[in-house]
Amino acid sequence: MTRSGDGHSPDALDRRIIAATQHGLPLCPRPYAEVAARVGTDEDEVIRRLAAMQAGGGIRRIAAVPQHYALGLRFNAMTVWDVPDTDVDRLGRDVGALEAVSHCYARPRHPPQWPYNLFAMVHGRDRDSVEARIREVAAVLGDHPRASAVLYSRRVLKKTGLRIPEPATNPASDPPPGGRPCSD
């Protein structure tokens, strides 16, 4: 659970702007004027709100989002490694700097069935090129990993951006999970 630090949470207008732009900006010369018309404000205010969200880190960037699959990168592998916690940041930075790696994260282990704490995503046009890139990652990690696994994607079952319900639908009072039947 990644939580923000700046304490600024989006108000109702921010949420309307998020809802109106999360699937993409209108393709017209004045996209923010179009968004403003949809959410009931003016172009300057939309730009101001988006700039504030960007300054606070709530927007990483405003950009084109490629479909790696369609761009020919049909194979993706999630490589996972169990490395000592004391080395994970240094090793993560080294792995993340590889051109072959698109994303690299430290995540919690779920022992005993999931001992891995370092995740590196690798994309490629075919299985051979992905395997070559995985060997690059393994070479950087050297003899640090105590265990590792490679999880190839079999199917993309869903791919959308952040989706928020329209404002005023916040069932935050749901009971916490727990005590329900749960098995692997």
Binding site: T21, Q22, H23, M53, R60, A63, A70, L162
Partner: peptide, 19 residues
């Protein structure tokens, strides 16, 4: 389908939410 969208990439965590 070469691009999935063009627009803001929101970080729900930094907006006070969680991912």
């Amino acid at each position: 389908g070469y691009l999935s969208r063009v627009g803001p990439l929101f970080d729900a965590g930094a907006l006070g939410g969680a991912v």
